[in-house]
Design a protein around this nucleic acid. Structure first.
Lengths: 343, 343
DNA sequence: GTTAGCACTCGAACAAGGCGAGTGCTAATA
DNA sequence: TATTAGCACTCGCCTTGTTCGAGTGCTAAC
């Protein structure tokens, strides 16, 4: 949709004031905008047009106008275009080094929440290349064998497997070689029944143990498809009256805690291959069947912690969100995450 | 505090009706209680006494009475005493088997929330006996050695350690024996500088690697002191009007997500050695410096998943909580968790 | 010690009315 | 033709006043 220059500027003025105040904005308010220099009456005519175009809405007869979803969309797209052009320098948000991935993610999501004042989430990176790299069995005590499975990308899974009797060290070494020889480098799809049967046969008396290990390996890889999601700043939604009423807040908080809906958003974000940068979902656009989110906007971005380890960060807030600032903060954090392991 | 029989029964009647309705209860309502058979006027006199004793409160002159914290306390103590006596049979809440501890905990907390309709939490068990059981180094690829550390109670931690060059298999075997020979069975306090120096000396050129492993082991054990906390059903607080208003809900949700306050409650529960069963904190009794919780009651219980692995489950709701039901549900879940690994 | 009766209190719910922000339309103006 | 000033009108919000009723405390009678 292409909009005449003046209408666009009036729309922007309306949205900007609405973002700041959260109240319907009237023609007089806009007429005071220095760089427009139009009377309230003219603005009224223009507003009438904008309403006809579906860009703004009048909540009731004698009220000002508020942006519609379509209006927001136009505004956001324009803003993103502007941002693309001007590679502005940013003040850095600094990430402290963390030794555990989990702590890093928690740190990031907290940072995101405190910097934006919106509810924030981060998904742990999912590994797209799900090959087995290395398997190691060790006898931990008389009743337990520990299976350590390393997946491409150095992700590690452990499973404790109960055994009837202690396995001879020499025997264990053979099993390790058997497993690594047959499975290392394979993706989960490549491990078929035939292969499993063959390995089991070679394992002889320990075939049950081997079956357990393969099972664990399959589960380990599968688990990565369901990324962990961390959240922070859910209470921020109470800052915005339009979300703070009981029923809405309840649904949003519920969705936020349940992680189901967030999972959908994460999946959607990761699935969209052409947008490398920021994605903005406004109101009904939010990929969530639940009805909790349609009064919200969601901004997401994909980070790549290291080759093939992609995750999503996102913030959730009211439709009248400070998109400008949010996009800035998210870009900063994204860049830092992308560089995290390169430093 | 000992209360005459009749006053106690009136207090119980008041609290029970208040729990159900959430509204101040008047003398007439109580006078209709079949098993009391007293007129409203008499009840009024008794209520006046109860108020003087600080057990009930009148929100404003022409309103009924609501229980005070002290009143609740009396009621709850009495109820717990009753429960102690009658070992009632319970309908079972059934836990499905889960292979990962994390999933078990998530399942439990969800179950707790849906069964009680209150916000629920569970802490992962903390290991009190923090001994190293087993250490295993493996060469995963040319640049990385994987250290797997198993702690008493079969808790497993992994660390990837970067190395300059591949280590000979024979050499690695020696290092493994060195580590296990010297560290297995030791608690973290027993690993002192002298011991570390001795091991490093024996490790020769690989002393740096060994230092990293010991470091990782120390961190792994330490991490267990800060238990993970899972929550569910935070949105349940919106069911209770007295908590659902914006500022209160915001603070509670914030506390709930931040896990800091919950951590305190968990610590408090675990620290209290003599109560083996259920703990009830009413209003100001809640061990949380934040002011979000003083309108709430918190019920916690300690479970013991297996020898020495203790954790806490808890629910958070309004002071007018269905203590009876909550205690029942928690006891069920506790018992099931206690038996979980014995089945 | 218990109960009936009564005057009194006070919040909740409802209705009426004024206020004011904002609109659309029309006629005048540049 | 585009813009602006003026004006009547609309409608949600807030304030005020009123009623209603649940609940109380007190007193006198049982």
């Amino acid at each position: 949709m292409e909009l005449p220059e003046r209408k666009m500027r009036i729309l922007q003025a309306i949205i900007r004031t609405y973002l700041a105040t959260g109240e319907p904005v009237g023609s007089r308010t806009i007429s005071k905008y220095a760089d427009l220099n139009l009377s309230a009456a003219t603005i009224r005519n223009e507003m009438s047009d904008l309403e006809e175009l579906g860009l703004i809405i009048q909540p009731h007869t004698s009220a000002g106008r508020i942006p519609s979803d379509v209006g927001y969309r136009l505004y956001v797209d324009e803003m993103l275009r502007e941002k693309e052009k001007s590679q502005q320098e940013r003040e850095e948000v600094l990430l402290a080094r963390e030794d555990r991935l989990e702590n890093l993610l928690k740190q990031v999501v907290k940072l995101l929440a405190t910097n934006t004042n919106y509810a924030s989430m981060i998904s742990s990176p999912v590994i797209s290349r799900n090959k087995i790299k290395f398997i190691q069995l060790s006898q931990v005590d008389a009743q337990h064998v520990l299976a350590v499975i390393v997946i491409e990308g150095n992700l590690i899974r452990n499973t404790m497997i109960p055994v009837d009797e202690e396995i001879d060290a020499q025997e264990l070494l053979k099993l390790n070689m058997l497993l690594n020889g047959n499975l290392a480098g394979l993706a989960i799809e490549q491990i078929n029944i035939g292969l499993i049967a063959a390995i089991k046969q070679q394992a002889g008396v320990h075939s049950q143990l081997i079956a357990n290990v393969i099972d664990a390996a399959a589960k380990a890889i599968e688990a990565d498809d369901r990324p962990e999601i961390y959240t922070s700043g859910a209470d921020n939604i109470f800052r915005y009256p339009e979300l703070a009423d009981q029923s809405k807040a309840s649904r949003i908080i519920g969705d936020f805690e349940e992680k189901q809906v967030l999972g959908n958003i994460v999946r959607e974000t990761l699935a969209d291959p052409d947008t490398e940068g920021i994605q903005v979902y406004i109101g009904g656009e939010v990929p969530a069947r639940g009805q909790g989110m349609e009064d919200c906007s969601v901004v997401t971005a994909t980070y790549e912690l290291s080759e093939g380890m992609k995750g999503t960060i996102g913030i959730i807030g009211p439709k009248r969100m400070d998109y400008d600032k949010v996009v800035d903060v998210m870009k900063q954090i994204m860049t830092q995450l992308d560089d995290y392991y390169k430093q």
